[in-house]
Amino acid sequence: MFETIRYEVKDAVAWLYLNRPDSLNAFVAKMNREVKVAVKTASNDEQVRCIVITGEGRAFCSGQDLSEVDEQMDHGQVLRDHYGPMIKQIRLCDKPIVAAVNGVAAGAGFSLALACDFRVVSERASFLNAFIHVGLIPDSGNLYYLSQLVGQTKAVELSILGEKVSATDALHMGLASKVYPFESWEEDVAAFAGRLATLPTKAIGLIKRSLMAIPQLSFEDYLEHEAQGQRIAGLTNDHREGVTAFMEKRKPVFSGQ
């Protein structure tokens, strides 16, 4: 079904492997499209309650494949046609999305990781806003997310100086949620994704929606947005299960409904 990625669903988790290890999983137009389709497929699949994006081989994703770059091309149009739709599809997804950053995440690969809800990183991973080194600006939503995640000071540093960020630094500056050792990487990521897949999925989606709405809402409007979100959450089976489990002093079993 896919050529540039590998996609599989296991125990309520959709695994999306960027699968061009020979070029450090660099983006070609086809990979933009396939990531978009896979995220949409996972979003619509009722079995799926968590999505993980990771890389095959030693890199997470090295950004745009420069062999596909033609000096005549319209860089803006490439973003509108290929990267924008992929990033928007990720933003539309109500389910939790984890970037499992196994190695270097550079350029648009960094942007891809930023667009996800969580970044869990291998101790061997690193982030690099490489655009400045070829005289370009960070794209695919990069600065939008980066400035929210690490603030203006660090966003400016990473983007203008273009220095590499280690896994530990990423954790300290709020770019990553977890750093896992190389030896137990796969088990640790699977455990993290598995945990997300057992949480109240609908409530997670509503939290994501609220967080995304904040930049465009006044406080008054936000409170109304929040009230609608809580009304929806209050109608879910998972809310009822949570309350019942609390009363019965047992662990809740959430269905995602």
Binding site: R209, Q228, G229, R231, I232, L235
Partner: peptide, 10 residues
Amino acid sequence: IVASELLMEE
């Protein structure tokens, strides 16, 4: 604009 789940309710 309201949440799609709550359109009729709202």
